[in-house]
Design a protein around this nucleic acid. Sequence first.
DNA 1: GTCTATACGCAGATAGAC
DNA 2: GTCTATCTGCGTATAGAC
Lengths: 211, 211
Amino acid sequence: MFWLTTILIMEQKDNTEQKILEAAHDTFLIKGMDGARMQEIADGAGINKALLHYYFRSKQKLFEAVFANILKHAFPNILEIFNSDKTVEEKMNDFVDKYLEILIKNPYLPNFLLKEISRAPEMIAGVFFKSGFEPRILLDGIKREFESEGIHIGDVRHFVVNLIAMIVFPFAARPLIQRVIFEDDKAEYNKFLKERGTEVKKLIQTLILKK
Amino acid sequence: MFWLTTILIMEQKDNTEQKILEAAHDTFLIKGMDGARMQEIADGAGINKALLHYYFRSKQKLFEAVFANILKHAFPNILEIFNSDKTVEEKMNDFVDKYLEILIKNPYLPNFLLKEISRAPEMIAGVFFKSGFEPRILLDGIKREFESEGIHIGDVRHFVVNLIAMIVFPFAARPLIQRVIFEDDKAEYNKFLKERGTEVKKLIQTLILKK
DNA sequence: GTCTATACGCAGATAGAC
DNA sequence: GTCTATCTGCGTATAGAC
């Protein structure tokens, strides 16, 4: 009955508050906190500015609501991937696929996160760590798993940063790369992004086979 | 006599206009166009807001001056590296070293560029392409050089994006990574950044030796 | 060239009718 | 809950004295 529940939730939330959150999401995601305008959000939601303040007292509060929501959907069950009983190599591949999928659906996410985290690290960290997941434990786990398969990956922090960099960067730097290397060919760049999965997984493979 | 010229230039430019440009640079680099305040720039330059408008008619014009300046210093002689008579492998290593050096000196650069390019791609592209360098030719050259040494690197666009991603991303995502993985240990993260050179060059090596 | 004072517009926020 | 009208403050920009 999950689908029913979902529909119910969707419907009962298809109210003004929800419409505001959606419009705010769209505006904040692209313009960021500094660049966003309450008027634009109101227009997007089909209401007026006053109602925004009725539901969320301030721009800041509205932003925080949107941001928490974005984080929740941006980092869904990483643990789910790493708690499976697959080989660590398969987990890495799952991670790549999962995150590329998320980013292809939410291409503005990387830029938004980088921008906002550098703008207000303290505030962001506050929202972020409410999720209460333990990165250090995750990293140690990855290292241990690799070693138990006889693979020496070196400093696991570099390994993970390399991995995430190769996944995220093509999205974060899209406006630049697409223009400079792809002569602003949008379709060609989308094709390129879809190829990233194979590319990154091949690179992991190379690293692992090296030993 | 270059050093003398340099000093002369520095001194003759140690005037109000120069002080404004420097203060504007610092503010824009960290806050971006949207987040920057003319008051903060004026304070930084030790003058008042009116003078800003006397020298540069508007915030927009001031920003463009700063941005052009940043680009000029951010992308110095890439061509110089690639026009040398070293092996392509050595060129790659030089590229990594050179860019890490630049980024360690200008750690805010990646975030600033990503932010501004996504905010106003057209304007940015205008300033950018005045430098008139040809990325496609550069990429083709890299591919050809690798192949002439019998190394098949696959799609050169993926190769280059991987390379730049691994160099740039740790700087762009610093506030996040430092907090999440390094428990906000600044010194430790600086050490990590300095290790990136070895790390990335090792990875290039792996890719090349694979064949 | 540099300052103080001020104009002007915009964006966030509130008051109050319905 | 939703609207219109309005306030308030801030940030860019200008006027004008020195």
